[in-house]
Amino acid sequence: MAVNDDDVCTSKYITLVSNDGFEFVVLREATAISPTIKGMLRNPFSEARTGRCEFPEISAPVLEKVTEYFHYWYKNQDKAVVPDMDIPVELCLEILVAADFLGLDKQQG
């Protein structure tokens, strides 16, 4: 992924980093559902320059599921019938907390 350090990063993809250093590359448009990430990628913040969003409070398995959700949401944006995404029961509460943090409680971004 090309990161432009001088200017605002305009790449189609952004990187999400978990607290244990795992990186997830996501379509920028797919993260539009999260107001939190949208806000991070606005200009004055360093995330806007680098296109890297670090989440020191989210672990890799949870962030992986969140990343999966971003693409699931993006793919099914306009569909009438959407099969539910599978949420592993053991991670359910952690994902719930992460979803609250990322503002993923609305259907539309």
Partner: peptide, 13 residues
């Protein structure tokens, strides 16, 4: 229309 929110999915699970 569209996918459910992640929070809804988690709460349903």
């Amino acid at each position: 229309p569209g996918a459910k929110s992640l929070m809804t999915l988690c709460i349903e699970t």
